[in-house]
């Protein structure tokens, strides 16, 4: 059975990539208000999720027994 961490890793990586793109596309947003301007939360969160997801996705890549 493929480990859950493999699935979780790739889901997080996809989410990270989407959030990163959103952050680069629109670094600030009306909904965030003045409090969050300049923090670039989406960019940092996106990079974090992408890195974490790739680590898990690659480390737990299913390998067939030889």
């Amino acid at each position: 059975m493929i480990p859950i961490w493999f699935f979780a890793g790739w889901l997080l990586a996809v989410y990270g990539a989407l959030i990163l793109v959103a952050g680069l596309w629109a670094p600030t947003s009306d909904t965030q208000g003045v409090a969050m301007q300049g923090m670039h939360l989406q960019i940092w969160w996106g990079i974090g999720l992408l890195a974490l997801g790739l680590v898990y996705g690659i480390c737990f890549w299913p390998r067939h027994p030889k």
Partner: peptide, 12 residues
Amino acid sequence: LARYCGPGLLGL
């Protein structure tokens, strides 16, 4: 959530 999350993060 609305206060701190922009597009993408809000979806998450």
